[in-house]
Computed example of a mutant assay.
Amino acid sequence: MKDKVEILVVEDDAPIRNLIMTTLETQKYKYQTASDGSEALLMAVSHKPDIILMDLGLPDTDGVEVIRKIRTWSVAPIIVISARSDDRDKIEALDAGADDYLTKPFSVEELLARIRSTLRRLQYLESQGTEEIALFENGDLTIDYAAATVKLGEEKIHLMPMEYSLLCLLAKHVGKVLTHQYILDKVWVNALESDLSSLRVYMATLRKKIEPNKGQAKYIQTHIGIGYRMVRIEKN
């Protein structure tokens, strides 16, 4: 990872944009700003930021469409900051390629916690190449830790950093039930109470990608009120 983290702030509301800028300045983060979707795409291409903070209600286009376009060439973590609080909006943004979702109004402390958590996930992904076991295989699911890639059969599955971190954690403890709190502590590190609902959303998007047969939970089993377990599958 670069010594100096660079963040792109995409926000058309000047007071909120100024609040975010001031917050980043106090933590010595380098940043660029964009006030609409077109400018965001230009800045993302030219500056290649490490993290993108993305508002959804942009004046020229919906932020979800901007995320989809960025995802055609970049895997930089995207943290959505939006007033849309419905789970359907969160799922749509995550399906488009967002990695995290922060609902307005938000506290400065929570924003910084999300950024720190995202940076830790990036460091975690970078460290995967040093794992003693290069490949994890379970049924048709394969995780190549060195390449940080996931395949279902011969098909490569595109996962966002958050989804990949969750999948690797479940794979490391295949067959064991991991509690919600354990997962939050390992993946979010400094978990916030609101992260439990986000965990459910991320698990839903992860399942859609690795379990294409709807209604048939194959790899990830939900233990209601407790947590999740990766099921050991015999290869066909």
Rank of each mutant, 00 (worst) to 15 (best):
K2M: 06
K4R: 12
K4L: 10
V5T: 14
V10F: 05
E11G: 00
D12F: 00
D13T: 11
A14N: 07
A14P: 01
P15H: 05
I16Q: 05
N18E: 13
N18H: 07
N18W: 04
M21V: 11
M21I: 10
T22K: 11
T23H: 05
Q27L: 12
K28G: 02
Y29S: 05
Y29I: 08
Y29D: 06
Q32E: 13
T33K: 05
A34W: 00
A34K: 08
A34E: 01
D36F: 07
G37I: 04
E39F: 10
A40R: 07
A40G: 04
A40H: 08
L41C: 06
L42T: 14
L42K: 13
L42Y: 11
S46C: 01
S46W: 01
H47V: 06
P49D: 07
D50Y: 01
I51M: 05
I52Y: 02
L56T: 12
L56A: 14
G57S: 15
P59M: 11
D60V: 08
D62K: 14
V64M: 08
E65A: 13
V66Y: 09
I67Y: 03
R68L: 09
K69T: 11
K69Q: 09
R71Y: 06
V75W: 02
A76D: 06
I78T: 03
I78D: 00
R84F: 15
R88Q: 13
D89W: 07
K90G: 08
A93K: 01
D95M: 10
D95N: 11
G97T: 13
D99H: 04
D100Q: 13
L102R: 12
T103C: 14
F106L: 13
S107L: 10
S107A: 12
S107M: 10
S107V: 09
V108T: 14
E109D: 11
E109Q: 10
E110S: 11
L112Q: 13
A113M: 08
R116P: 00
S117T: 13
S117A: 13
R121T: 10
S127M: 06
Q128C: 13
E131D: 14
E132D: 14
D140F: 06
D140T: 07
D140S: 06
Y145K: 15
A147C: 13
A148T: 12
A148S: 13
G153T: 08
G153I: 08
G153A: 08
E155L: 05
E155D: 06
K156I: 08
L159Y: 03
M160P: 00
M162A: 10
M162C: 05
M162E: 09
L166H: 00
L167C: 03
L167H: 02
C168D: 04
L170F: 04
A171C: 03
K172F: 02
G175Y: 14
G175S: 15
G175F: 15
K176H: 11
L178C: 03
T179D: 02
H180Y: 07
H180D: 04
Q181P: 00
I183C: 00
D185Y: 02
V187W: 02
N190I: 09
A191H: 05
A191E: 05
S194G: 09
S197I: 11
L199F: 01
L199T: 02
R200N: 04
M203D: 00
K208I: 02
N213D: 06
K214G: 03
K214P: 00
G215R: 09
G215W: 12
Q216L: 10
K218Q: 12
K218M: 12
Y219R: 07
I220A: 10
I224Y: 09
G225S: 09
R229W: 00
M230V: 10
V231Q: 15
E234S: 15
E234K: 14
K235H: 14
